[in-house]
Design a protein around this nucleic acid. Structure first.
Lengths: 338, 338
DNA sequence: TTGAAAGCGGTACCAG
DNA sequence: CTGGTACCGCTTTCAA
């Protein structure tokens, strides 16, 4: 006997009352006899009755589930973001459906489909790095499932976004180095087309400008962010005629690779490094960046979740239709390790 | 007009046929007119019809969702495990509901409740470290929701488990050190009552025995795994009259802490270290463990997911009731970094 | 080949 | 205060 979960009807039958009465009793409906109420509650307790939420969901047309799709969990950025999302979700009696796209568009599409099928009430997405076709997102909008994008955001109009302004952090990073007396500062950036890369470059330039220094394009190289690419970029930048004393690295991971390479190749004057991410592991390194730009993933996740819940809850409000779009931009911040 | 998703009935109405016909047409039911079938499919396509899975779920009594509850995502062990779970889930058209207990029993209970309410088909759990009361798990079993425990497993009878045998890895670790000539090997273990600690100690002793060496209890200390605790344990063990040349550390994180401390306090002869976890970041350290024991989290996750799906699918098979319990034990393996 | 109707587990309205 | 009933969206059996 695979004792299936007890239902409201079973309780009704055993008590010889109608199941609507049972339903009301369980909900403390005001107009219900105290006696029956107690009887019902007692039996429900005994049977270990639990309302079948899927039934409730069906008739409410909601699932109290928010889907989260992100590239992967390997980078500590994303676990932190999820934690922020989960925190808000839990407080609102929502639950989190997780999917990793592994930076594959194909898989991202699959996940979006799957979450749509499961009728999530809303979706929070950090897009796969190389997704360029946004049909699956459009389809989602058509299905009337709200999305909030964060971190890696598609260039679509009329979407909700949460992101971290890297420009401010970049300015801080470069200013920090300038204040320490560095004048020839290299920038090993990510792929040129990435917004993230553009923002870093922008900040780099602005900081120079502020200090009335001329921007020298030969001090900037791009890496494809693979280990080999990073090392190649390092050597390329070190070839510069001017003596580079400091490097701004696109990401802590890139910093790790080039620091290792600097170590292996035994450079005599190791450049000072400033990077991005503020990975927790950094503190354990001996030769580490002097500082790293924090992007507050937890906060980003939290914000994204708050927004999606807000949208879900106001979905049927006439006013909020198709007009306002959230664009939350947090400021990044340089964390000094010394 | 918050255009709600089109339903089977709408299609039926527009086509002036009954909605059961529509349902069948959509499912390629054999006994359906080719003409109507095409008409229906065409309109469904146009309207962007998608079956409401929550309705399907309700009547199937399934949600195609598996819940995963684990302490947190900060340690790379868990993201890897999730990836394994997700892989299997996706292949089987299941979806993953995630919850982090943050090693709080209270929160774990909450999550279990929440997942029960959402009627997950099965649950995969790595228990919060200090959970000692198992009522919430028992309740789950009563609700007929299958659970597979992995990694941190409660001491309950009649449960399904996936775990990694740390004894074999520990033997390898100590043997490795012995082969290198070390004779005075310290063990900085975790909290005494943890299974994980017991297994490490067990392996430590067995390896000594195999090599006809005497076990010296004074070479073993326990840490509470906080940073302070780790450092304290290190100094305690270094006080030993015998000269410790190698240390087996409970976990890479502990190794990190004590290596940092050894560095700071400028010990002249730094002991060789072997630890557990094989964290990806280890490769970037200069002073790093010589080797680390891998626990194959991805595989553990994968196995756990396979089991839970197997149970779910055979749930209504008479045979499989309450008899067999999976106890999968993977072997750990020492990874040499040199 | 198609329609009608029951039922999955609830909620909520209308009667009485 | 309680029972009856319609309905949420879909699958499936029974009849026609």
């Amino acid at each position: 006997m695979p004792k299936s979960a007890p239902t409201i009807k079973e309780i009704a039958r055993k008590l010889n009352i109608s199941f609507s009465t049972v339903s009301r009793a369980l909900h403390d409906h005001p107009s219900i006899g105290l006696g029956t109420k107690l009887k019902v509650k007692k039996l429900a307790e005994e049977l270990g009755y639990e309302p079948n939420q899927t039934a409730v969901f069906l008739q409410q047309g909601k699932t109290y589930t928010i889907g989260v799709i992100l590239p992967h969990l390997a980078e500590s950025f994303f676990p932190a973001a999820i934690s922020g999302i989960e925190e808000v979700a839990i407080k609102n009696d929502y639950v989190v459906l997780l999917g990793q796209s592994l930076d594959s568009t194909e898989r991202e599409i699959m996940l979006v489909e799957s979450m749509r099928k499961h009728r999530v009430d809303g979706l929070i997405i950090s897009m796969a790095k190389n997704t360029t076709n946004y049909e699956h997102f459009e389809k989602l909008k058509k299905s009337n499932i709200p999305i909030v994008f964060f971190d890696c955001i598609p260039s679509m109009k009329e979407i909700h976004t949460v992101s971290c302004n890297m420009i401010s952090g970049s300015i801080q990073a470069v200013s920090y180095l300038l204040k320490k007396g560095h004048r020839v500062i290299g920038l090993i950036n990510g792929p040129e087309k990435l917004t993230a890369s553009k923002e870093r470059l922008e900040g780099y330039q602005q900081a120079l400008l502020k200090n009335r220094l001329k921007f020298d394009p030969s001090l900037v190289v791009n890496s494809d962010l693979t280990k080999e690419g990073n090392i190649k970029a390092l050597h390329e930048i070190l070839k510069n005629k001017r003596k580079i004393t400091a490097i701004v690295a696109f990401h802590d991971n890139l910093a790790l690779d080039i620091m290792q390479e600097l170590d292996i190749t035994k450079q005599e004057h190791k450049p000072v490094i400033v990077s991005y991410a503020n990975l927790p592991m950094m503190q354990f390194l001996k030769y580490k960046p002097n500082a790293s730009v924090e992007q507050f993933p937890y906060l980003q996740g939290k914000k994204a979740a708050e927004i999606i819940l807000d949208i879900i809850k106001n979905k049927n409000n006439e006013q909020n239709q198709n007009n306002a779009f959230y664009k939350i931009i947090l400021d990044s911040k340089l964390i000094d390790y010394h």
